[in-house]
Design a protein around this nucleic acid. Structure first.
Length: 144
RNA sequence: GGUGCGGAGCGGCGGUCGCCGGCGGCCUCGGCCGUCCGGAGGAAAGUCCGAGCACGACAGGACACGGCGGUGGGUAACACCCACCCGCCCGACGCCAGCAAUGGAUCGCGGGCGAGGGAAAGUGCCACAGAGACACAGACCGCCGAUGGCCGGCAACGGCUCAGGCAAGGGUGAAAGGGUGGGGUAAGAGCCCACCGCCCGGUCGGUGACGACCGGGGCAAGGAAAACCCCGCCGCGUGCAAGACCAAGCAGUUCCGCGUCCGGGCUCGUCCCGGGCGACGGUCGGUCCGGCCGGAAGGAACGGGUAGGUUGCUCGAGCGACGUGGCGACACGCCGCCCAGAGAAAUGACCGCCCCUGGCCCAAGGCCCGUCUCGCCCGAGCCCCCGUCAAGUGGGCGAGACUGGGAACCAGAGCCACGGACAGAACUCGGCUUACGCUCCGCACCCGAU
RNA sequence: CGGGGUGUAGCGCAGCUUGGUAGCGCGUUUGACUGGGGGUCAAAAGGUCGUGGGUUCAAAUCCCGCCACCCCGA
């Protein structure tokens, strides 16, 4: 959508998404569905920024990561908000097995918030998601 | 080809990875699987009206408050839609004037707009300007001064404008109290007359708004009700986070659940602490005996609000053909169809080919410009000529010719690129309003060719 | 989902009820006082009254639509 989206997208080699990989589902269990789960992630207060995108993180004690999205009405009208959430969900779905895991194999709950911006491409969101999750993981490893 | 009205569609095909709901399987009962089925709109938007539905309140009526307002119809209903009436505006086909370009007027015609009841029920308002602003009004500039008065004159009459008469003209203003023409008069005036307008009454036509005609009235009755108001009609409140159900737990309420003896204490209550006996409850136990435990700790019943789950939740004033009735909105009949139901919120991502659009480039062509020729129209501004006419320059339109020029525009084999409107269901419908690009279809009218 | 409010000069606000002149404070500009600044005094400039329609002779004001922002309730 933005002409300068290429600045955020050095040509990342697409990771192979063939049948050799584990499943790329995005089911109900991959989502945060209650306000108290969002509150828990917010109170942990581990957040990383990249441009207009902010990521909150909290270990969830499960074998899979979970995603929560909080896209306010300031981002745009409903069509644009829906498009942004679809892009972020797709990025999470494709990257879910490359996101960091703790030593015991458990993963993190992630909450993503955005400020208004000209939308990026899917590859740019995948790269941002991976790097932000790694950065948050490093912060948790230091604190424990 | 153009204009107007109405309707339909929204990129297509293939592949890979996914999402929501349904159905069907499998099992470790919570998940997994399926060459299975369905999956955004005309505005889903704004939330401006009208309803359904749900709960609460409610005998009936009146007041208050709010909304609506030509007439008739449509509808579940409406501030919506249809038809008609009235008023206003535009056009110029017909009309008039002009040699013509063109201009003018008002009806018929065509198109558009209108929140369009009542201002002789009442209250208030109409700034500034103006003499006067709603009062059977108003003498600023004006007009007259017939009649009466004064002066002059024998008189006819003349003068003064003192009394007074006048709403025709000027001027002010958004608006000055019917209009035009004639008579009349001292000057004037619906004072009188004709026509037009207005009001009242009647007849006829129409369901009606209203219209036509006839008769009467000399005109009294300004604007504004999207100022208050009056009249008529309509209207209970809250809204799916309405509301209903389920399990668990909690606050709370009610009921049940110790009598007796001895000792001690004090704030002397039939209170507190300790002990014995008996009953009661629980527990061990198949049962009894018995043991252990219990004494305001518990048990039973009722039971919110919030959070959770289920439901409300999509078969409905439904959609699509066809037929009938109606000018139409629409109604009826019959046949066929099932078409999203989430709940931190689904319909997406990527790749390839094609379609549309945009840009680059460009041969011929269309096209444009120029020159020449021909035809038609305008008419006296300029130049020239002239006694005038005529002709020429000039302006406009059309046709043809050019091995003349141009590449902005049209079209286009090819290449490239991003772009593909407005916009996302949240209880459901009917409207309104606003945003919006392109394609296709139907009807009506106009122009050109055949 | 429902309800309410605001939009006027660069900034903050009056004026709207009862329609006819758009005003106040700060700021800006110019001049004077001062050697200069500040300050004071004097004068001036500056407004499609958010936007599009309607009613009216006349609209910031009355009515309707739209836009933007803010607040409240569940």
């Amino acid at each position: 959508m933005s002409p300068n989206a290429n600045e955020h997208r050095p040509p990342v080699p697409e990771r192979s998404a063939g049948p050799s990989d584990p499943s790329l589902h995005f089911r109900q269990r991959h989502r945060l569905t209650h306000a108290r789960e969002f509150e828990a992630v917010y109170t942990a207060n581990v957040r990383k920024h990249r441009g207009p995108v902010t990521l909150f993180s909290l270990p969830n004690g499960r074998a899979w990561p979970r995603l929560g999205l909080s896209i306010g009405s300031r981002v745009g009208p409903a069509v644009q908000r829906n498009r942004l959430k679809r892009l972020l969900r797709e990025a999470f779905r494709l990257e879910q097995h490359h996101l960091p895991a703790r030593a015991d194999g458990t993963r993190y709950d992630l909450v993503i918030t955005c400020r208004p911006h000209g939308f990026w491409t899917l590859a740019a969101y995948r790269k941002a998601l991976r790097e932000l999750a790694d950065s948050a993981h490093a912060a948790w490893e230091r604190s424990t």
